[in-house]
Simulated assay, not measured.
Amino acid sequence: MTTHSSETDTGPLQRRCPDCGVGTGQAHLDGCDVARCPATGLQRLGHSPSCRCPQDVGTGRWPGEAECIEFGWMLGPGMPDLNRLLTTATWDPATYRWTHPGTPTPNTEGEQR
């Protein structure tokens, strides 16, 4: 697996969400296109109203960008391959992160599955 420096692959952290305008570390506002559902990793906008997941917090990066850098899935400098991420990786709701295919995940008893 190739790892890349965030300095060379991405720009600086965004100080504000490009959609709802909240600062890094703050919960995205309802209706924000950038916010993700922590239960599914998918866009929170339009997800089931019955989902009781907590609000997503802005990180200063586009959702999934950090994982694309980590996995070496970049289309070019500053261009994470988010389509590959969404179609290949698996969302881990316990860690709120996408996992690389083939990465063992612990089951509820803490054993690898």
Rank of each mutant, 00 (worst) to 15 (best):
T2A: 14
T3P: 09
H4P: 00
S5G: 12
E7C: 02
E7W: 08
D9H: 10
G11D: 12
P12Q: 04
R16Q: 14
R16V: 13
C17M: 08
C17G: 08
G21A: 15
G21T: 09
T24A: 15
T24N: 04
Q26P: 01
Q26D: 13
A27D: 14
L29P: 00
V34Q: 04
V34W: 13
R36S: 01
P38E: 05
T40G: 00
G41K: 03
Q43P: 00
Q43C: 05
R44A: 11
R44L: 09
L45E: 08
G46W: 08
H47D: 04
S48G: 01
S50R: 09
C53M: 03
G58F: 11
T59E: 04
G60M: 09
R61S: 04
R61I: 06
R61L: 15
P63L: 07
A66V: 06
E67R: 10
I69V: 15
F71K: 12
F71T: 13
W73E: 13
M74T: 10
L75G: 05
M79V: 12
L82D: 12
L86T: 07
A89T: 07
T90P: 00
W91K: 05
P93R: 05
A94K: 09
T95S: 12
T95M: 04
T95G: 01
T95A: 08
T99H: 11
H100M: 12
H100F: 14
P101E: 10
T103W: 02
N107G: 10
N107S: 05
G110W: 15
E111S: 12
